[in-house]
Write a protein that binds this DNA or RNA. Sequence first.
DNA 1: GTAATTTACTTCAAGCTTGAAATATCTAAG
DNA 2: CTTAGATATTTCAAGCTTGAAGTAAATTAC
Lengths: 157, 157
Amino acid sequence: MTTSPVKAGKTEPMSKSRLRLWLKLLKTSGLIEEELRRRMRAELGTTLPRFDVMSALSRAPDGLKMSEISKRLRVSNGNITGIVDKLTDEGIALRVSIPADRRANLVRLTPKGQALFARHAALHEAWIDEILAGLNADDVAGMVLRLDHLSTTLEDE
Amino acid sequence: MTTSPVKAGKTEPMSKSRLRLWLKLLKTSGLIEEELRRRMRAELGTTLPRFDVMSALSRAPDGLKMSEISKRLRVSNGNITGIVDKLTDEGIALRVSIPADRRANLVRLTPKGQALFARHAALHEAWIDEILAGLNADDVAGMVLRLDHLSTTLEDE
DNA sequence: GTAATTTACTTCAAGCTTGAAATATCTAAG
DNA sequence: CTTAGATATTTCAAGCTTGAAGTAAATTAC
């Protein structure tokens, strides 16, 4: 063989394998998301964004400011306005004004919203368990470790 | 220690760790996607969906049917119609009628579209390389393996 | 051949999403 | 106080996305 011993020849550039990883990551989370969205619609008559907002609210019994919701869900402010508007119209969420700051509101789940979310969350967890049934504890641990590593570096940008 | 040796006590139910994995997967791919979208807009004046369609077309020099594009990108048919309409208006893509089947069209990139995509694809790969720079070859290999496993089981549903 | 089905695509309404611009309010500097 | 800046939210236009319904053409089964 006359080629340099330094270049193995078979190895792919890192940029290519990173690209492939990204495409797989995107594909996989898309598949899961699609399945969740389908079930949300079919079995609960709701959507993922609504579920996400309710989920954030359910963890904050004292309520969250609009900006706090959008920060946690990493979506734009204007987006949250529309979703909370609808949840409010349906009696699921509630805007509570803050005397100390007339610019802001605290958004809370109503009792009806809490009951609804409890039902939805239980189903949601069961669906995930079912969808990810192919992964054992080692798989899960391995992926969580690497995803943590990755998302940490991404957030520190 | 007096507790049963069988039950460790600290272990979390699989459903919880699977849920946590899903949330991390969603978060991570969302962070990457957001960064890509930002750069697409800022540096190329385009969007991820348009890039995805162009990418699919670039791999099929003979063209793709509309339904083939939506199948590959896993989005609805109606969605593709709108995106291809715009790419066509801009001289990036082209609908070619098929004599043998008057229902369908083959969509192709124009030479202008090919040149444009070549430029975009090179940048895209470089961005991914930069964004995922924190992962070494082992990390990448480990994640690809597990994501393959997962997406395969998901597609066989 | 013709009726029923399947396939290919478009149109549409509803909803999500963003980023920018507009309001309103609060805070801080002078 | 008043002005400047920061913060909290809403509104808006543009674009993405879906799923359902509609049109058209091809295929299959009688």
